[in-house]
Lab assay of single mutants.
Amino acid sequence: MALNTPQITPTKKITVRAIGEELPRGDYQRCPQCDMLFSLPEINSHQSAYCPRCQAKIRDGRDWSLTRLAAMAFTMLLLMPFAWGEPLLHIWLLGIRIDANVMQGIWQMTKQGDAITGSMVFFCVIGAPLILVTSIAYLWFGNRLGMNLRPVLLMLERLKEWVMLDIYLVGIGVASIKVQDYAHIQAGVGLFSFVALVILTTVTLSHLNVEELWERFYPQRPATRRDEKLRVCLGCHFTGYPDQRGRCPRCHIPLRLRRRHSLQKCWAALLASIVLLLPANLLPISIIYLNGGRQEDTILSGIMSLASSNIAVAGIVFIASILVPFTKVIVMFTLLLSIHFKCQQGLRTRILLLRMVTWIGRWSMLDLFVISLTMSLINRDQILAFTMGPAAFYFGAAVILTILAVEWLDSRLLWDAHESGNARFDD
Rank of each mutant, 00 (worst) to 15 (best):
T5E: 08
P6G: 11
P10N: 07
K12N: 06
T15F: 06
V16N: 06
A18H: 08
Y28K: 09
Y28Q: 12
Q29T: 05
R30A: 07
R30T: 05
Q33C: 09
L37E: 09
F38N: 04
S39M: 07
S45H: 08
Q47L: 04
A49R: 07
C51W: 15
Q55E: 08
K57H: 05
I58C: 04
G61D: 13
S65E: 04
T67H: 07
R68T: 02
M72Y: 03
M72G: 03
W84C: 08
G85S: 06
P87H: 05
L88T: 02
H90V: 04
H90Q: 05
L93M: 04
G95S: 15
G95H: 06
D99S: 12
A100N: 06
A100Y: 01
V102T: 05
V102A: 06
M103I: 04
M103L: 05
G105F: 01
I106K: 02
D114Q: 05
D114G: 04
T117M: 03
F122M: 12
F122I: 09
V125K: 07
I126G: 10
G127P: 04
A128T: 14
V133N: 03
V133M: 12
F141P: 06
V152N: 07
V152D: 02
L153C: 11
E157R: 14
R158G: 10
E161V: 14
L165A: 13
V170T: 15
V170F: 15
G171M: 03
I172K: 03
G173K: 01
A175C: 10
S176W: 06
V179H: 04
Y182A: 07
A183G: 01
H184Q: 07
I185L: 11
A187Q: 08
F192E: 09
F192K: 11
F194N: 12
V198D: 12
L200Y: 15
T202F: 15
L208H: 11
N209W: 13
Q220C: 11
R221F: 14
R225H: 11
E228Q: 12
V232S: 14
F238E: 12
F238W: 13
G240M: 11
Y241H: 13
D243V: 07
C251S: 09
H252D: 10
I253S: 10
I253V: 11
L255H: 08
H261I: 03
A268Q: 04
A272E: 01
S273W: 02
L278C: 13
P279M: 15
N281K: 03
L282M: 13
I288T: 01
L290N: 01
L290Q: 01
N291T: 15
N291L: 15
N291A: 15
G292Y: 07
G293I: 12
Q295E: 04
T298G: 06
I299G: 12
S301Q: 09
M304D: 11
S308V: 13
N310H: 02
N310W: 02
A312C: 13
I319G: 15
S321P: 00
I322V: 11
L323K: 13
P325I: 01
F326W: 09
I330T: 13
V331C: 13
M332K: 08
T334Y: 15
T349I: 15
L352V: 12
T358H: 11
I360Q: 04
F369L: 04
I371Q: 00
T374R: 00
S376D: 10
L377P: 01
R380Y: 04
F386Q: 00
P390K: 07
A391H: 01
F395G: 06
G396Y: 01
G396F: 03
G396W: 02
V399N: 05
L401S: 11
L404Y: 04
A405Q: 04
V406I: 10
L409K: 05
S411E: 11
L414K: 03
L414C: 10
H418W: 11
H418N: 07
S420I: 11
A423D: 15
D426T: 08
